[in-house]
Design a binder for these strands. Structure first.
Lengths: 363, 363
DNA sequence: TCCTCGCGCTGAACCGCATTAGTGCGCCTC
DNA sequence: GAGGCGCACTAATGCGGTTCAGCGCGAGGA
């Protein structure tokens, strides 16, 4: 009783289905399903036999069929909203993604990764993915101080975990502990403590005039770092004229430009903290142009380490964090939520300061 | 006649299906399917009405259901096999991916992107994705001189396009035009012409001793570049003692190390060509350490531009290519293949040399 | 006037899996 | 020895689309 049309001809190599397994093992399709999914209802004998046949046939569950009946897509999403222009030198995301996938691979979950131009497109993509049931949940990066995404995701009912800090409204300055719980489960790094470490280092070297070249003003962690800097400075008796922040778009161009303006100041700082590695290198380059010796006359710290910080001369002191670890944590947290676990706010490992040659005692 | 159990309660916001549309539009489900997929079989009137209802309901096809019946997953795959260690500063892949997605987004095709440790895992992933019918095709990057992937993919019947050069056996030296057609459709850049441009530039500036710090020896384009360098050098009457290549793993560490060895030579070169930006910057840094003025005593060229090349001092002369454009081209080519088009070998735009401050006349 | 044809649409099968409601049977119980 | 129970397994149903075989009907041709 051959199927009409000889099904196996023009379709390249028809993949085996549970039906094939059932036939070869001499049981029903449901028995196969039970056997392969570790459900009760079949004897150990049958289970073993079915497993063997499945192995022989090289069977893998068709993800579409499974998704259709099981209501799980078996995939998570990650959208990176960056204008193409600023899609620069970033080891951060590849490392983050690689960490995430370490966790997902073990459970055969795929990651849909998409780079888009702006936040609106990102939101539209969440809607579409969810409507199409392409993903079971998403990881949200680059949380902002005024972020539409948590509300959107909550409204959609799309499970999500924010990476990099509370994506809801920024916690109040006065009483951080009474801040409302963030809308989204979150994994974040303690920027305040990290900033304290940086200031400890610089203050210990005698620096009293410090400028912080921050990233995009709209991002939540930018706000946190700026706030922390103020707080930490105050703790050390430094005021706003001595320690301040300026914001940029993270690009080398704005990093260099900001550095020029800062160094043009009649009383320039003796140390600059850059919110990423690219700007730090750009800043070091500006210093070199002007003949300002680093670290003798100017100390430089990069927030985030990369090969970049090690190839320049002098090599840059940098705040090192375990980015893949961060990704693993986030993925794990999202899976927990999907499994019905409680939405939590968990904290990643505290970054440490890798002191290299770009920071030294203040003259 | 309500469904038993009140389906809409504990499942978060049941998504509308064509059944809902059919009911509201007063037609059958098949009519809805025809209307929404631009197939004949419904009047313009009905089509418009169905479309409107679908719009109102915010309907999007469930990708799993569509995949199950339509035999198309609606997704493509891209695997990046890199040991975590060398997952360094790379703007290349993000830009490539962003270009690819520009093309895919228009057709609502998703991209599964995965970072893995090695080639074996990559191959295993292709098998799994294909067995699970998660993807309709894949984009293969980092083709190697001795590459198992084209054969695997051909055996599986998994449609694929290689990015960055023939992924099959390297074309023969003698008669490149008679080389066997590559196993995979391919988009590639003409490294030979690009290398000619670089040599034109350096030779024109008077350089006669040139070293090429290449990347991973196993990669196809590394081999092509090395071969091209020899050819181009010979055309200009330079021999192997004057112009040569060394291979590295692309890392800043090996780039710096290679540079040190090269400069230790009793008759060091007057120009170095680096196969990526990171190594070029590392090399420049070594020169700075040793007090070798760039470009007065040593010219430096980076193969691939990035912010990096612009933030260092002096800024590096670099070979600029349109990476997102390359991605668009590759995505387009894969879609063509999926639509039944012929497998072709197409060539990306020729890179151009952006002359900056790191190259100058030979003393 | 009758037959044919094609249009616009419906009903049903199917994709591959999960799941639920049976079914047959051996065994224990009273 | 009849009833009940649990085990191993099968049959049927549904997920949300696509597709294909029909079907009624009005128009056009003979």
């Amino acid at each position: 009783m051959t199927a009409p049309g000889g099904a196996a001809r023009h379709r390249p190599a028809r993949r085996p289905t549970i039906k094939d397994i059932a036939r070869r093992a001499g049981v029903s399709e449901s028995a196969v399903s039970f056997a392969l999914n570790d459900r009760p209802g079949v004897s150990d004998d049958t289970r073993a036999r079915v497993r063997r046949v499945a192995e022989e046939l090289g069977w893998q569950a068709n993800s579409a069929a499974r998704a259709l009946s099981g209501e799980r897509a078996g995939a998570l999403g990650l959208v990176l909203a960056r204008p193409a222009r600023t899609l620069g030198v970033e080891s951060f995301f590849l490392q983050l993604v690689s960490g995430i996938q370490e966790v997902l691979a073990a459970r055969k979950i795929a990651l849909l990764f998409q780079v888009v131009e702006d936040l609106d497109t990102e939101c539209a993509l969440y809607r579409r993915w969810w409507a199409e049931r392409r993903v079971d949940g998403v990881l949200v990066v680059d949380p902002r101080t005024d972020d539409p995404r948590p509300e959107l995701l909550a409204a959609l009912g799309l499970p999500a975990v924010a990476i990099g800090g509370p994506a809801g409204p920024a916690p109040s300055d006065q009483e951080p502990d009474t801040a409302p719980p963030p809308l989204l489960p979150t994994v974040w790094a303690d920027d305040a403590k990290a900033m304290a470490r940086v200031l400890d280092h610089l203050h210990g070297l005698g620096h009293r005039r410090i400028v912080h070249v921050a990233g995009l003003p709209g991002l939540a962690h930018t706000a946190r770092r700026i706030r922390s800097l103020r707080t930490e400075a105050a703790l050390r008796g430094l005021d706003e004229r001595q320690v301040r922040s300026v914001t940029t778009d993270y690009s080398d161009a704005e990093g260099a430009e900001a550095t020029r303006r800062i160094l043009d100041d009649p009383r320039p700082p003796t140390a600059i903290i850059y919110d990423n590695d690219v700007m730090a290198v750009a800043g070091a380059s500006v210093a070199a142009e002007r003949g300002i010796p680093v670290p003798a006359a100017l100390s430089i710290v990069a927030w985030d380490d990369s090969a970049l910080c090690r190839v320049t001369h002098p090599r840059l002191t940098a705040l090192v964090r375990d980015t893949p670890g961060f990704g693993r944590l986030a993925a794990h947290e999202l899976l927990t939520v999907l499994d019905g676990g409680p939405p939590r706010t968990v904290q990643g490992e505290l970054p440490h300061l890798e002191a290299r040659e770009s920071t030294g005692p203040c003259e």
